[in-house]
Design a protein around this nucleic acid. Structure first.
Lengths: 343, 343
DNA sequence: ATTAGCACTCGGGTAGTAAGAGTGCTAATA
DNA sequence: TATTAGCACTCTTACTACCCGAGTGCTAAT
């Protein structure tokens, strides 16, 4: 579709703009090492690229900046996700150095990503919906308080502290726990509430005295919130980007960061495999329509997966970011997935 | 120290500036209902107040703005922390409506506070350091993964997922758990690591085959991070304040928000009881030297306490915030503290 | 096909000006 | 004596005009 020369010049402009965030003029392109053309010739090519929609001008006599279509072409045609050199080693070292703890690894990865790129990293931990209940326990702390602990087969732990009303008998509580263990262990999380309302409720009303009150407590305690673990790292990195000199843009973005549910949805909507790049207006969420989001899933085990993403200006270092994400996703999958597969 | 008239005018200026964020002129003050003086007279008083250090000018012909000393005087002499009316009810309703779960209450409170005030709320949950271990369990998920769960007597739950090396025998793992239960339950968190290194290590090396490897895992799993639960609500609220039209100020602040440890320290350093107000440069952390922090502790039970704080511009609605915090701290203390005391 | 040359465009910076808000001081007033 | 009216002065902000430089697009020459 594009000639070699057009492609080369598009690439040079994107690289330059990515670095300096200033519109790129024909003279600047002409002076680049890879280019042996006069400014005038470059101008002609640039005019063509603009007509094709790959470049834009801010005003009639500014240099060119890449359009979203330009970035899209660049990402689709120029980049291969093989990472070589230093970063690969950093990641390998970071990840394998005596880390066996899921949350820790994921959190460290988020930190690492945002440090290496100066963008904002968002990592969504495992999708709890598909998991099922592995263990349920109630540990009493004082006479009137207790903590309930739920564990899923994917290792997700949820806990709630609550106060026990004085009217509740200890042996009723024990009975209740036994019913719960009997009926709920092995049940997929998504069915918990239903089972609770039917089977468990029925059993409780038969065997337990104060069942209405207890059940009420139970329901609010066991109703799983669908929010998975979410990590956001390097939010302030984006503030350093020159595109954020306007406070309104910042406001919208940070309001998004505060809305966990919306972030989760954002990452859930990404593809199930491979690296996904959404550029500017390709994003459906308004607050990031002037940013790019690059994401990739990683396997946690047996069909469950998490998502790593990086959020940066459309003027993003796509090559670097894609290679980093690719490498990191591989490492994480190796760590969590093969660990289970290997035994 | 100040005459009645001076006090009145100081108050009017602070109230006006708090609302509008613009320097207040003598004419504006003179027109206020509570004031029956001409602009000229007000000017004289304002000049006096400036000389005393309670007011400042931005430039020679601007109106006056309160100095930090001015706010300090206002807070110390004019405000009483009794809340009446609507907010009290909102809080009561919010807090008592079928909530028995600690984290939920605290998180809702943070949300509530930032919504009611349009400032940023920071809530520090219980101080784990003083707690001691109540329960310790290891639940195996698959052949090679397991999750360890620790519960303190204050209801704090910590969990870590880890992979079990194949070389470890199941019965060794069981032995280890028994040793841990025997030796660590009841031990204050702060002493955990020591006990682990001495008593537990000794026992393990006697009774368990592969003890070096297991111990290594154990140590990284059980070493408690001193970070308590921290909630920050309404970060983006501050972005709407006109004092944040400069991106640099925002950057420093949000970098602080990302540094949990620093936030925890900030709140830990507040007074042990009563409401603490630190205004502008009274704060030790650079990033908030142009903001005010108002905080109050609340009792969780038996000597443990958490801290609620609100962060806003020095031009803050001190009266409202102080009254809100006062009321909320009382409600929380009632809920968590008296619950235990009452039985 | 490429390039040099040139007229043209537009944004950003600088300087000057006018308007407006507010002050401080002085003199008049109750 | 305390208060107030009046007025000159100060400083910011908004607006305008202007110039400079970077960059373009087109034409003609190579």
């Amino acid at each position: 579709m594009l000639t070699d020369r057009q492609l080369l010049i598009l690439q040079q402009i994107i690289d330059d703009f990515t670095e300096h965030a200033h519109p790129v003029g024909s003279r600047a392109v002409s002076k680049k090492e890879a280019i042996n053309l006069s400014a005038a010739t470059v101008r002609n090519v640039m005019a063509d690229l603009e007509e094709l929609g790959f470049l834009e001008k801010m005003h009639s006599s500014s240099g060119r900046i890449p359009s979203e279509k330009g970035y899209r072409y660049y990402v689709d045609h120029i980049i291969s996700p093989t990472l070589k050199g230093i970063e690969q080693n950093i990641i390998k070292k970071m990840i394998t150095d005596d880390m066996f703890e899921f949350e820790h690894v994921v959190q460290t990865s988020a930190q690492l990503l945002s440090n290496l790129t100066n963008y904002t990293s968002i990592i969504l931990g495992q999708n709890v919906i598909k998991a099922s209940l592995k263990s349920i326990q109630i540990i009493s702390l004082t006479d009137t308080t207790a903590v309930a602990i739920l564990v899923t087969d994917t290792g997700h732990v949820e806990h709630k502290t609550f106060t026990v009303p004085e009217s509740v008998q200890v042996h009723d509580l024990e009975k209740m726990v036994n019913i719960l263990k009997d009926r709920l262990i092995g049940v997929p999380i998504i069915q918990l509430e239903h089972k609770l309302r039917t089977e468990v409720y029925e059993l409780m009303s038969k065997h337990i005295e104060n069942h209405e009150l207890l059940f009420q407590y139970l329901q609010s305690t066991l109703t799983y919130e669908p929010s998975s673990k979410l990590y956001v790292g390097g939010q302030s990195n984006l503030l350093m980007q020159p595109e954020f000199n306007d406070v309104n843009a910042i406001y919208d973005l940070f309001t998004l960061f505060e809305d966990e549910q919306q972030l989760v949805n954002l990452l859930r909507n990404q593809q199930d495999e491979g690296i996904t790049v959404t550029i500017g207006n390709e994003n459906e969420v308004d607050a990031i329509k002037n940013l790019s989001l690059i994401s990739t899933p990683f396997q946690i085990g047996l069909g469950h997966h998490g998502t790593i993403a990086l959020l940066g200006p459309t003027r993003m270092q796509y090559r670097k970011v894609i290679q980093l994400l690719h490498a990191l996703a591989n490492e994480l999958t190796d760590l969590f997935y093969l660990a289970e597969d290997n035994h």
